[in-house]
Design a protein around this nucleic acid. Sequence first.
DNA 1: GTTTCATTGCGTCAACACGACACAATATAC
DNA 2: GTATATTGTGTCGTGTTGACGCAATGAAAC
Lengths: 257, 257
Amino acid sequence: MTKNEAIGALIEEGQNWFLPSLSVDCVIFGFHDGELKVLLLKHRHRNMWGLPGGFVYKDEPADVAAQRVLQERTGLHEIFLQQFHAFGDTERYDKDFHNRDLKKDGITVRSEHWLLQRFITIGYYALVEFSKVSPSEDTLTEKCMWWDIRKVPALMLDHKKILDKALQALRMQLNYQPIGYNLLPEKFTMPELQKLYETILDKPLDRRNFQRKILNYGILCRLKEIKKGVAHKAPYLYSFDLNRYREALRAGLQGGW
Amino acid sequence: MTKNEAIGALIEEGQNWFLPSLSVDCVIFGFHDGELKVLLLKHRHRNMWGLPGGFVYKDEPADVAAQRVLQERTGLHEIFLQQFHAFGDTERYDKDFHNRDLKKDGITVRSEHWLLQRFITIGYYALVEFSKVSPSEDTLTEKCMWWDIRKVPALMLDHKKILDKALQALRMQLNYQPIGYNLLPEKFTMPELQKLYETILDKPLDRRNFQRKILNYGILCRLKEIKKGVAHKAPYLYSFDLNRYREALRAGLQGGW
DNA sequence: GTTTCATTGCGTCAACACGACACAATATAC
DNA sequence: GTATATTGTGTCGTGTTGACGCAATGAAAC
């Protein structure tokens, strides 16, 4: 199927396949070179970046739709994916904007067309291992790549707001659930894990206090110390104790009351 | 407008007024007699209880729709209302179920009718002052009343799941935001506040430790001690310091990292 | 009127968690 | 070897938390 055929089919048949007025958007976080990254894509002919998103098939659970979008972009499945908010403001659509976009593809639709209607979107955030992902475009997108969270460009519609809310939800999660298994390679050093936390929280942490607190969670296994080829003292390598990690995910970490 | 006219208009015109396939449901919490209550309603001719819900007008923000539903049922406005989850599973609709319900009203619709489609619903929970609420029915509902959270009857569709998730979100909120201003009368005693916390958490708390912790939040004002007509020693009365309360709502209470 | 007793206000104590910081061990660069 | 950056481990003071003691209060019982 060529690009134009694919777009044409979506335009014509979309309303028969998908739930109307509803979409899902994914904020896909990765971690690389000490930077928190987010996967963004640029639509064809549209000079603006946005979050990877998609529609929900009429007989498909919303969570599965998000999973599907995620898989299309990263090639991964069975990864950490969490719904964090539904965005239902009226400002979050722009009929002219979409119309202009479609016209660039030589497509003209009536103003009642389903793609031009107001959409509610359900936001999900995902944590993925950077090195395992190969960002991939599809027929509708021109580019798909990682962006440093601190350097994201202007985003379409309310996607900046969605991204901010996702980051806020991720920070909240640090307080009551373990983080890292989905963002780091299988073996990692304590400084790497700390850098991840510091990057997410956007503030420095004390090296020694961090180690003490993390180890007290009891979800890490210390391996033989390797990590060669590094300047200065060689740090230990750690891996997550999956059983304990999952248990901590289920039961939560600390908790006030 | 009679009941049947109202229903008829909804059946006929609803798809022109509302966003398709989308609804909002409200879990309205109240506190009375040491019990956490939730406001449920029973649809006409339907022998089952459910959460108060509604549809979203095509030009109406989802949050406003929830506020509207809340106001219709409680008469209150400007109250604490928080979105906590969107429910998008495919099991959450039952075409036959709805059809049977409509037939009891003498209404027959085609199977493509908008009301029979699969719906995604956005869940909100609200905290309201029990005494200020007068539960009210409307043309579509037969009954509307408070239920003890521990004695809720079987609920329609996935409403039990929604209720459970709301309660879980409320418990989470206790950990990082103050609670009580919306659930208690303006003046209250420390034991009353403690009972509220115990009821939400469904576990006993130490009287003295509770007082210490709550007072350290710095959001309470102690008044003259009154609370007459009570057996045994008369407890102090407290009220919330609204400025500090709002500040705590904004900034959060404690927080791990 | 005195006693009883559940309830409230206030305080104590040990255990633990947390932030700030010291010091020795180790591996690379020169 | 020496310098230097980084890591592993420990300490110390502070504040928070959980468990509990005790005196004060005021309606109810006698």
